[in-house]
Design a binder for these strands. Structure first.
Lengths: 130, 130
DNA sequence: GTGGGGCTTCCCAATATGGGAAGGTCAAGG
DNA sequence: CCTTGACCTTCCCATATTGGGAAGCCCCAC
């Protein structure tokens, strides 16, 4: 049985986050006689799973569903796939939005002298009346 | 002189946000005898400026600097340009990060049957040991 | 038995936006 | 004159995720 520090080192999830995930019901922890949390291999595997899902940008509520599906041996892979593709759509929408901002701003900046003079199309765009 | 509701309608910034921007010192408001906030054309122009900057993804701290530069008639456009291009870099980094997640996940999903069977490469990836 | 490192809980911080309650103000209309 | 409704005020709370830090307990090594 590992302490929270060991579980953190093994799973790559900070102790702080492990406690947080427990507080929102994503992970379980046994308690030793001294009230310290203890973790077995299963819990560490859950933590690693969460870390991987987070690395793919899944919000914690999605992670919760993924964990449920993971534990469900009778899951339909269709459900996992739907969850994943919905998330992909969300990611791509956000990426598109950010890239659109970047492109607009880059165009504006391209026309800015960028010297000591005050006039600047970026500022001009921001102060437009529409 | 406009009320906060009128300033909101004219600027496209919600009354809630106008109050918030005031609380963090981005905007100023005069008070009428009844303690209601009042706004002139200048303040509405500031609010519009903020909305445009936010639409380009500038965080409020950047907006604060942009407002200072806007008000400074002796500004060097180089400063505005640097701020903008730094922000563009941030936006593109985030967009790239999101797109990388989307691409990985899309590849995983492409190999998922997506039927009633439980086995799924997405889940398999998440439970990997590394 | 003391020091240090790890553990506990609890509060606060950041981001930006909004919901909603409780109460003040004002104009219109019965 | 009084009510009603629309607008304003302030204050608290919520969202999502991660971290910093304090105060205090636990245990091992020296």
């Amino acid at each position: 049985m590992k302490s929270i520090g060991e579980a953190a080192a093994e799973s790559g999830v900070s102790a702080k986050m492990i406690r947080h995930y427990e507080s929102i019901g994503l992970v379980d922890a046994q308690r030793a006689a001294n009230n310290y949390r203890t973790y077995g291999k299963d819990e560490v595997a859950v933590l690693r799973f969460i870390r991987h899902a987070r690395a793919l940008g899944f919000p914690l509520e999605d992670v919760r569903r993924l964990l449920d599906l993971w534990r469900d041996r009778n899951r339909a892979s269709a459900e996992v796939k739907r969850l994943a593709l919905d998330h992909v759509a969300t990611l791509e929408a956000k990426a598109d939005s950010l890239r659109a901002m970047a492109t607009s701003l880059r165009h504006l900046a391209a026309h800015c002298h960028g010297d000591a003079r005050p006039d600047c199309p970026i500022i001009a765009e921001l102060e437009k009346k529409d």
